[in-house]
């Protein structure tokens, strides 16, 4: 009995794109040209996801995150490699696969635009053949996690972005799927809404044991929710481990800020593997008066940024 809900082995996905030429003459050429180039959106990626995990799936724009999600959800067929989601090949058995997954994709609402949320829920309950009792229990759970009443009878088109995102997430969990894919669920939301969305995701993950694959550019999401992160860049996996490990893997950097006698602040990034903070301060004190100090941990965001910028060099 394995605990692995998603297994991807050497998955690649290529797209054929027409090479377009510049300018007026170029577009006349394009009328007849057969000049294609192959783009590798996902390049030989292997990974496994265990039941109940919340995984942060990160990478710069165009790295291949969405393509991976589309392969996992059965929308796209991989060009090469093997994939099993809950023991099934998603693209071969899309319908059966979608019984057991929930998806919130970008800012595109999957709810019926003109219907009040409760009617959308009702339709989804029928589509997923959710038993009446489970449905009621789920609504009860929702009530305990969020303030459901203000949105339940509101048509989706009249909702604020935050309410819509909330609704979409609730809709994705409604049929109690084993895996939920959340693609940038907090994009464009204000701070308090972000916090509520994170709270909700964590709550549902804890109560229902749902596996969550979260793609995001917001490191706040990652810090709040994920223990493990996977980073891909240019279609290749470049990191797959615990978030704690990420910082040490990258080096134990801290930033020391000191206020000197003339009230100016100086900053020094310190690699603790090479020298320790106290030593730096002692050295400084020999020449300057230090009035105040601050010690800052390097943030996940900075680490990620360094990885994006520097590739595997870290």
């Amino acid at each position: 009995m394995s605990n692995e809900v998603i297994v991807m082995k050497n998955i690649s996905k290529q797209f054929k794109v027409l090479n377009r030429h510049e300018g007026l003459k170029g577009s006349i050429q394009d009328l007849f040209s057969r000049d294609y180039k192959i783009i590798k959106a996902v390049d030989d990626v292997s990974l496994t996801v265990n039941k109940g995990e919340i995984i942060g799936y990160l990478g710069p724009n165009g790295a291949g995150k969405s393509t991976t999600i589309k392969i996992m959800t059965g929308v796209l067929e991989p060009s090469a490699g093997e994939i099993f989601v809950d023991g099934r090949m998603p693209y071969k058995d899309r319908t059966a696969n979608s019984e057991n997954i929930g998806v919130v994709f970008g800012q595109r609402s999957q709810l019926w635009w003109n219907l009040p949320l409760i009617e959308s829920f009702n339709l989804l309950r029928n589509i997923y053949l959710v038993p009446e009792k489970d449905y009621r229990n789920m609504l009860e759970l929702y009530r305990s996690l969020v303030d459901l009443e203000p949105i339940l009878h509101k048509p989706v088109r009249q909702m604020s972005l935050g309410q819509r995102t909330l609704s979409d997430i609730l809709a994705a969990f409604l049929h109690n799927p084993g895996i939920v894919f959340l693609d940038e669920p907090t994009i464009g939301l204000d701070v308090s809404m972000k916090a509520r969305i994170r709270e909700l995701i964590r709550g549902l993950n804890e109560v229902k044991g749902t596996t969550v694959i979260l793609t995001t550019h917001d490191m706040g999401d990652v810090d709040a929710l994920c223990k493990r992160i996977i980073i891909i860049d240019k279609g290749r996996k470049i990191y797959d481990n615990d978030i704690e490990h990420l910082k040490s893997y990258f080096g134990s950097y801290r930033t020391l800020r000191m206020r000197l006698g003339d009230d100016s602040w100086v900053e020094q990034v310190i690699d603790e593997k090479k020298t320790d903070v106290m030593h730096v301060m002692q050295e400084m004190q020999k020449e300057h008066k230090i009035k105040d100090i601050q010690l800052q941990e390097i943030s996940t965001e900075e680490v990620i940024r360094k990885i994006y910028e520097g590739g595997e060099s870290a």
């Binding site: 589309k70 929308v75 899309r94 019984e99 998806v103 970008g106 595109r108 999957q110 589509i127």
Partner: peptide, 13 residues
């Protein structure tokens, strides 16, 4: 626009 993808996530035709 890419909105079509939402129809591909449901367990129905």
């Amino acid at each position: 626009s890419g909105d079509f993808i939402k129809y591909c996530f449901r367990p129905i035709n």
